[in-house]
Amino acid sequence: MKTWDALSEIQPIAVNMLKQMIIKQRVAHAYLIYGDKGTGKAMLGLMLAKSLFCQNKHGGEPCLACVNCRRIDSGNHPDLHWIRPDGASIKKEQIAHLQKEFTYTGLESNQKVYLITQADLMTTNAANRLLKFLEEPSQQTTAILLTENYQSILDTIKSRCQIISLKPLVTQRVQTRLESEGISKENARLFASVSQNLDQARALNQDEWFAQARKLVVQLVGILQANHGEALLFIQKQWLQHFSDREQQNFGLDLILYWFKDLIYLDIDQKDSLVFIAYYEELEKCLWHWSRADATKVIYAIMDAKRNLNYNVHPTLVMEQLTLQMQR
């Protein structure tokens, strides 16, 4: 996904806006791009930077071949400053560095761009420093702020940026693409739901780990219905072996979440929305065991478990607690 056209498939409105601004040379001094994970924020940001720096663009489309475009890809462009969270937050020093950078003229031209990923992670101090030069932009400087969490950006920053909201991913679109590539409908739905974009979904199809993860979820639910005593053993022996780091554990919880969401969909007869279509029979069986109210409770429990995991609670404890809560 390299050109505006390719990006416009997933974000038609935002891309059109940005492209028109470039063609008409009405680039604002600051953009705040927000959207869920995988909606292409960084790609849009980089694309915008390329459009500003590219030496031979035509019709707002950067060439992607010139020195500038290539150096933006490799992270070596001297006038593009990319700030990423240093640890858990974006620190005041990072913004101070940026500030210093912008009191100087550019190294190659006067065009300067700064890109801040996860702008919501700026400390208040950092945000306030940034504010100071969002207020007084120098002429050819463009700020691009990216965030998943629009609500936690300071109001004062929001009000100084042109806000571009990205549409959430349409799973339907990814699904049809996958189906057209010969992946079965059942699998395509699951891949599309749990992944963030087409490439990732394709990768899942090849992924042994994911296949095993899916099997474990179905097994866990089966054990929960049949044999209470074994569930904790199963968690200890199989689940935690398979989902070994925090990211994977989160992913595992997501899968269980989808399962129980499916239960509710099935209960209210919205079969179109099911994710685990491949396991229709197992889902129906589950309905005998968990009522809709039960399923809702379980979903809350899973959300709590996810939060605990992020608060560094020991994963074994989190999973054991969740298992006990899931057993009715």
Binding site: F102, Y104, T105, N110
Partner: peptide, 14 residues
């Protein structure tokens, strides 16, 4: 610029 040495610096903007 001296005979064999070039020293370049960015300027301050403003």
């Amino acid at each position: 610029q001296t005979e064999h040495l070039n020293f370049l610096s960015r300027l301050l903007d403003g």
